[in-house]
Design a binder for these strands. Structure first.
Lengths: 282, 282
DNA sequence: TTATTTTTGAAATAAATATTCCATATGTAA
DNA sequence: TTACATATGGAATATTTATTTCAAAAATAA
């Protein structure tokens, strides 16, 4: 039987790589080829079944199990979990930092640290997931508009206020629609073809905002949507939508990532608008 | 039985997303929640078993299968294959790390990454610097108040809106003072000894908010202040102030950390208030 | 060479995972 | 309300997948 390496194997993929190099020489031929394959194709190990993998490496399933065991894991599944984990956690520098901080603190997590962690993670994800080009396209729509109407209710209202504040400071004409004592139809009628609606909405989605988007799309006015899901009713095929997902802590969702995205959107819009104005003046 | 959508579903994840948006409205409640989860956590769908996933979504395994079938796949496994395929070509940890390093090194930082970085830094600092006991004391002041009056202008207004929204949801009576068409003196007169003023103010400090704080302190009403500096004119010896400093990117200051602190403050206040209410009822 | 140990593959078994089926619940139209 | 359709959860079943076992093949040492 193949010797089983006694030292506990790494539970983190990045540590597994150098670790394997050390022990590579001691492995039998077939197990060596498995090792080489695993280092070259970690994603295959993570995602496929033992049968499919062993087929690709041209070994038998038993060999795969033996490989995993020989380097110290309980079995193939145990090893696979490590590979899968490496795919899940696309490096998250900030949360990583927070994590280690929390570990060193050792004590119970405070409300503050829970929320800061959630916020940091939401922001990290925001940077990774938001489509830069979508952000630019949305900014262009807003910059080209004669007037930007901003709408949103409930938890979205602070975002509305912030966007309005920032856009105005940047010289982009905008008004807040939510606060006005008009009917939806009246509000929608204000929007002309060369105007744009900036709609912010989070689950649970308010019927009001949705209705507004509906009418605007019918009237061919441009709509830029900021939501927590592309499945939100206000996200449509023919609008420009940005998605931001806030981590929740025991039912509470913050607005840290959302505010960050809002600022980006406003600043980009301001930049595009400034360029447009320049062209017109020449 | 749930209708099965006849059109062949996308075999590529990027096409699945917009495709789901179109059909989302037609799905039953549970299947909708699966859809939302799937779009937010494609990696979970790709890597986990049906049991584990259905557990995370709080549905039964059957529902997962039904979801896959209802959108046209042969079964869960068939759908999972599409999600797995999308992960295969996801940038690997190493190349990813290089990419982000390159970005930050080459000054070609995008607007988005600049702001997310600033936000993350601000939040990290927030956790390190905010005095947990100060947060608790401030929460107690607010929780004990008969009514919380919230004030703040300009960049602070979104924070005011958020605090108001959250406090109300948590059962803490509060009103926004900024919007009211009264003179400062009138506003201050509303506050009684057992009320509290929650003042938010950032540099450059508005005279209005400052005046309000002055009068309240004279009237012996409690004041909780949220500022970007203890040197702020509204921070006094005899009030309870919390400090939050946002990193600035080419002149723009975000609100990510501020919003995070605001949420903490509101939640803590809600907790304390709930305990107080309990005691009174017994 | 032979005796012995190690490695390997194929088949049997065990475990897990997905799928189907059915009874019940929920919603909807008459 | 009742009748009908749709949606849902839970348990039984089928399928897939991992693991173990064991005999045969290679490799090694005498």
């Amino acid at each position: 039987m193949t010797k089983i390496i006694q030292v506990k194997p790494p539970r983190v993929f990045s540590e597994l790589k150098p670790w394997l190099q050390d022990h590579y020489q001691d492995l039998p031929k077939r197990l060596q080829s498995v090792a080489v394959f695993a280092m070259h194709n970690p994603d295959v190990i993570a995602l496929n079944t033992i049968a499919s993998i062993s087929d690709q490496v041209s070994v038998t399933p038993s060999t795969m199990v033996r490989f995993a065991k020989s380097i110290g894991y309980q079995g193939f599944s145990d090893m696979q979990a490590v590979f899968q984990e490496s795919m899940r956690h696309v490096p998250q520098p900030y949360s990583e930092r927070l994590n280690s901080m929390q570990r060193s603190a050792g004590r119970e997590q405070t409300v503050l640290s829970q929320f800061t962690q959630a916020a940091a993670e939401s922001i990290t994800r925001l940077e990774q997931k938001v489509d830069e080009s979508a952000l630019l396209k949305a900014s262009e729509q807003l910059a080209q508009a004669r007037m930007v109407y901003i709408a949103g209710q409930g938890r979205a209202e602070p975002v509305v206020a912030y966007l309005h504040y920032t856009l105005v400071k940047l010289g982009v004409q905008s008004v807040v629609l939510s606060g006005m004592p008009h009917s939806m139809a009246d509000k929608a009628r204000m929007l002309q073809t060369d105007d744009a609606l900036l709609a912010i909405s989070f689950s649970p989605y308010t019927a009001n905002t949705r209705e507004l988007v509906d009418i605007c799309l019918l009237n061919k006015a441009k709509v830029v949507a900021l939501t927590d899901s592309t499945l939100s009713p206000i996200a449509r095929a023919d609008d420009f939508h940005l998605e931001v997902l806030e981590d929740e802590v025991s039912g509470f969702r913050g607005l840290s990532a959302t505010m960050c995205l809002a600022l980006c959107l406003a600043v980009e819009t301001g930049k595009v608008r400034a360029e447009l104005d320049k062209k017109l003046n020449i």
